[in-house]
Write a protein that binds this DNA or RNA. Structure first.
Length: 649
RNA sequence: GCCUUUGUAGCUCAGAGGUAGAGCACUUCCUUGGUAAGGAAGAGGUCGCGGGUUCAAUUCCCGCCAAAGGCUCCA
């Protein structure tokens, strides 16, 4: 009896009954067989050495495939566990899955505390075990046996996991002396795991539940070649160098003060200049798109948030309300701008002819994040949103969505964020009880979002059940220069607030209708967005955004006066330039300007002063030679135009 | 909030149970120089804050604050 195996290229090969994916690989080439980590059989990832189920399709997975990596890392997690058990007998094990970059294992070490000083020993043990080329043996076990095994080991975590499994679907994997409850799949043996590193240790609640015991989580990563591990470690170093907290300090962008409070960034002049530039950029773009600016105060009566529903939902996690000398009067720091904007909409009767009404505000909001949540500029307690609320008729949703997408893409282009996709978050397919708003409106909005995204040619994926209870949304996922993913730019449809604030407009039928509200923030928050921009550009901001576009470097103090004249000239053509008048040699001034990542250095000495030119040096590029100030102006204009190309409409 | 780690000059970091050090930055002077660090001198720290142990604490212990890596949640 033979079985037919269909390969991805469509060829069909014949094998003996009981053949494995590894046999398939071997029949193609030995080299391929060496690289096979697991295999996709009829679309399901399985062990490479597990017998094929009969006629099937087989896709061999190697390190090049995400699933292959996942197999490698999953097996590495088991290897980590084996090493930990060998070093710390009696350790209990939670779960140990592969993740986007590597793997982790949650363990309970009892009273033993593990720190980074212990990593080396664990890595050495892992290497020792991996080199033994231990086979991963899969075994299906009856539930009773599985329970007995982990009762013996006194591992309550595994027992709890088994408790949730059906008899007949339980499998164990064993490599060397370590046996784990596991669905798999795994590598044929431990030998492909050539280079590994324990990266960090952290606390993690069992099953992510704050009320349950906190386990020790060990993060690690592994590679088939030492060189790849080294490269990965270099990438981590690069990420560290680009860390916006570090660059923020080095480039004098922002700071924090214990006296002011955690999570409350203080913007220094250069950082504030970045913010201003982003705000002006967005204001200009929004004006073109028919937005109007509004302004609202930083506090409002608590009742406002009771009306909006935010108090009930988030009141506990907000700043405590502010009381006044007046008995019973309470204000709150505003955690969002939408209720205020709703009241602006409601301030007078609205006609369908007024819609869409697009209210925009760079509104600073305050939210009490838990202390452990704070992180540089990406997670703060006070931040400024490039917020706007579009009040429109249900039939206008799609058109507005298209326009907002344009705005988001404009931002991405202007900052060189060219790798992105959009997540369309829709209702749960089955359970619709948790959503408010009529079925008809939801369908209209969901279709509108899908169509708008398609019209703009966005690369999208749909997530069912990810919509907010008050409406569907579109979120942009952006990859930065180091390939890290960020969620930026969100557009949300909201049926809830217009309902709660009883917003109405008069339709062409002279009847009252409820408007649909769209929340949108292309930057999200200026703080978080700048953090991403800093890390994406490594502090080398696009010319249009750079706080200082040029620095004038006189060769000696004799030319400071000429430098000032040039400075005035540049100011007149809106080029932001400063002068380094220090009593230092030119080499020193250049070095400092390079370190400060100033885009252009303009050198002025005897030659230039005589010829009425400036010698231009570009950051990271070197000397561009002498040119007239006017030529330099054109160069700057060209560069800005190029970096905003397509961004100007 | 919880777990692990950390907190010494503006920055990066060394150090030790007997009340502190380097480099850079800063100030002054010399130098007036051509594409990534010129030279000299000087100033600068209650060693995160508060308690405890000790003859003596910045060092050891406890508490708090802040930061880092995670967990959880997110309008």
């Amino acid at each position: 009896m033979k079985i037919n195996v269909t390969l991805p290229d469509g060829t069909i090969r014949e094998y003996e009954q009981g053949a494995t994916a590894m046999d398939v690989a071997l029949s193609i080439s030995e080299g391929l067989a060496r690289n096979v980590l697991s295999a996709k059989v009829n679309g399901e990832v399985r062990d490479a050495n597990r017998p094929l189920p009969g006629d099937c399709t087989v896709q061999l997975l190697t390190w090049k495939d995400d699933e292959g990596k996942a197999t490698m890392w999953h097996s590495s997690a088991h290897l980590l566990a084996e090493a930990v058990e060998a070093l710390y007998p009696g350790t209990k094990f939670g779960i140990g899955p592969p993740i986007e970059n590597g793997f982790y294992y949650d363990i309970d070490l009892g009273d033993k505390v593990i720190g980074d000083g212990d990593f080396k020993a664990i890595e050495d043990k892992m290497k020792e075990l991996a080199a033994k080329k231990e086979t991963f043996v899969r075994r299906e076990v009856p539930k009773a046996e599985a329970i007995a095994y982990f009762k013996e080991k006194d591992d309550e975590y595994k027992l709890e996991l088994i408790d949730g499994l059906e008899d007949g679907t339980i499998s164990f994997y064993t490599q060397g002396n370590f046996t784990d409850l596991c669905r798999g799949p795994h590598l044929p043996d431990t030998s492909p795991i050539k280079a590994m590193k324990v990266l960090s240790v952290a606390g993690a609640y069992w099953r992510g539940d704050e009320t349950r015991k906190q386990l020790t989580r060990l993060y690690g990563i592994s590679f088939p070649k030492q060189k790849e591990l080294d490269e990965y470690l270099v990438l981590l170093e690069e990420a560290k160098k680009r860390d916006h907290r570090k660059l923020g300090k080095e480039l004098d962008l922002f700071t924090f003060s214990e006296k002011v409070g955690a999570g409350l960034p203080l913007w220094l002049p250069k950082g504030a200049a970045l913010r201003e530039r982003l705000i002006n950029f967005m204001k200009t773009a929004q004006e073109k798109s028919g937005y109007v600016q509004v302004a609202t105060p930083h506090i409002a009566l608590k009742q406002l948030y009771i009306t909006s529903g935010h108090y009930e939902k988030y009141g506990q996690d907000s700043f405590r309300s502010i009381s006044t000398p007046h008995e019973g009067e309470e204000f709150m720091l505003k955690p969002m701008n939408c209720p205020h904007h709703c009241e602006i909409f409601a301030s007078r009767p609205r006609s369908y002819k007024d819609l869409p009404l697009r209210l925009a505000e760079f509104g600073t909001v305050y939210r009490y994040e838990q202390s452990g949540e704070l992180h540089g500029l990406t997670r703060v307690r006070g931040f400024t949103q490039d917020d706007a609320h579009l009040f429109c008729r249900p039939d206008q949703v799609k058109e507005e969505f298209v326009k907002v997408i344009d705005l988001v893409l404009l931002v991405f282009r202007a900052l060189g964020l060219n790798d992105y996709e959009a997540q369309i978050s829709l209702r749960d397919k089955v359970d619709r009880s948790k959503y408010i708003g009529s079925d008809e409106n939801w369908e209209k909005a969901e279709t509108a979002i899908i169509e708008a995204a398609a019209e703009k040619g966005l690369k999208t994926f749909i997530e069912y059940g990810e919509a907010a209870f008050y409406g569907p949304k579109l979120d942009f996922m952006v990859k930065d220069a180091l390939g890290r993913r960020w969620q930026l730019g969100t557009i949300q449809v909201d049926y809830n607030l217009p309902e709660r604030f009883e917003l109405e407009y008069v339709g062409s039928d002279n009847a009252r209708h409820r408007p649909v509200m769209i929340h949108r923030a292309p930057f999200g928050s200026l703080e978080r967005f700048l953090a991403v921009v800093i890390e994406h550009t490594a502090g080398r901001f696009p010319l249009w955004l750079a706080p200082e576009q040029a620095i004038i470097l006189p060769i000696s103090e004799k030319f400071n006066e000429t430098a000032h004249r040039v400075g005035e000239l540049l100011k007149e053509c809106d080029i932001r330039a400063v002068i380094d008048e220090r009593n230092e040699k030119i080499g020193r001034k250049i070095r400092d300007a390079e370190m400060a990542k100033t885009p252009f250095m303009l050198i002025i000495g005897e030659k230039e002063a005589g010829a009425g030119t400036i010698s231009v040096r570009e950051h990271g590029q070197g000397d561009l030679g002498p040119m007239s100030p006017d030529q330099f102006r054109m160069l700057v204009e060209e560069r800005i135009k190029a970096s905003l190309s397509g961004a100007v409409h």
